[in-house]
């Protein structure tokens, strides 16, 4: 199973490296959104500081939509999904492999965005372990949910517009929990960030298990 997971992750990351969609389009897009949020709230630095965590994770959700759309498109183009089915790879391995590839891409953008937040929003990190753990857990939860929904809408004609409509509300718990945990990590609010992280982990585990179970039927041709 681990060999198949690595095979799928490696394939998706290699394709991303070749096309450089994340590097050349998504990362600049994320930084631009952060800067624009900064311009919009710059008149009141206190508001900007209070909103930093929410703005960060809202931008991450936008990045996730693009990453999931790209990941879905890889398999729907030219019947590639059929090759996965015929190859005999366990669908759960395909699911985990694709989710990990999405997670790696989102994490890469998050590293840049953390730098952007520190630079543009004048934020300070009070708990680096909590910040890193939140990024890791929230990203895996987002990737698992996104991969599952990506497969769900793969056969839909207008999937580019349907995906954000379904994905963004589904990820609302991630937005809330990750923002609160970040508030604690950045010292913005006196909340228990680790407790919110536990909620994030629970959300991620449920979606990952659901995805591993449902991905097989969703891959099937109709």
């Amino acid at each position: 199973m681990f060999a198949d997971i690595w095979l799928v992750t490696n394939k998706d990351l290699r394709i991303e490296w070749r096309s450089r969609v994340t590097l050349s389009q998504v990362a600049p897009f994320a930084l631009t959104v952060l800067v624009l949020f900064g311009f919009a709230l710059d008149a009141n630095p206190e508001v900007l500081t209070a909103a930093t965590s929410g703005l960060f994770w809202l931008t991450v959700l936008f990045v996730a939509v693009v990453a999931v759309q790209r990941s879905t498109a890889i398999e729907t183009a030219d019947g590639a999904r059929r090759a996965l089915l015929l190859a005999g790879i366990e669908p759960s391995s395909v699911f985990v492999g694709k989710a990990l590839a999405i997670a790696v891409q989102i994490l890469g953008v998050e590293v840049l965005m953390v730098g952007g937040v520190l630079l543009f929003y004048d934020a300070t990190v009070e708990s680096l372990p909590l910040l890193l753990a939140t990024c890791a857990v929230a990203t895996l939860a987002i990737a698992a949910s996104g991969t599952l929904l990506g497969a769900l809408v793969a056969g839909v004609r207008a999937r580019e517009t349907v995906l954000p409509i379904l994905l963004l509300p589904l990820l609302a718990p991630v937005l809330i929990a990750a923002s609160r945990a970040f508030d604690d990590a950045l010292g913005v609010l006196a909340v228990d960030g680790w407790a919110w992280l536990g909620l994030l982990a629970g959300f991620g585990i449920v979606n990952a298990l659901l995805g591993m179970l449902a991905y097989g039927p969703l891959l099937e041709e109709t």
Binding site: K11, R18, S19, G79, R82, A83, L86, A87
Partner: peptide, 18 residues
């Protein structure tokens, strides 16, 4: 069945960026 058949369809089932 899938593991033991070879199917060439109208599309090539190849990844453009590989």
């Amino acid at each position: 069945v899938r593991r033991s058949v070879g199917l060439l369809g109208h599309d090539t089932a190849l990844y453009d960026d590989l």
